Computed example of a mutant assay.
Amino acid sequence: MLAKANRITRGADYRAAVRRGARFTGANTVTYIRPNPDSSVVRFGFIVSKAVGNAVGRNLVRRRLKAAAYELLPQYSAATDGESGMDVVVRALPASAQAPWASLHEELLRASARHTNRSNTSRTPTSKGSVRP
Rank of each mutant, 00 (worst) to 15 (best):
A3Q: 13
Y76D: 04
Q98D: 13
S84L: 01
A16M: 05
Q75V: 07
E107P: 11
R34Y: 04
A97W: 08
E71G: 08
V56P: 01
V52T: 03
A68R: 10
A97G: 09
K66C: 08
S39T: 00
G53W: 00
V90W: 11
A97V: 12
R62G: 09
F44S: 07
S103G: 05
R62V: 00
L104Q: 13
V89N: 08
L104E: 14
G26P: 03
D81P: 02
A102K: 12
V52P: 01
E106S: 15
R43H: 11
D87H: 03
Y14I: 01
G21A: 04
T29E: 04
P35H: 09
V48H: 01
S77Q: 14
A16E: 06
S127H: 14
G129A: 05
G26M: 04
K50E: 04
T124N: 14
N54L: 05
A97H: 10
P74G: 10
R114M: 07
R64C: 03
A92W: 02
R123H: 12
R118M: 15
T29V: 15
A99T: 13
T126L: 13
N117A: 15
V30G: 07
A92R: 07
P100T: 10
D87N: 05
N117C: 13
R64Q: 10
A17L: 01
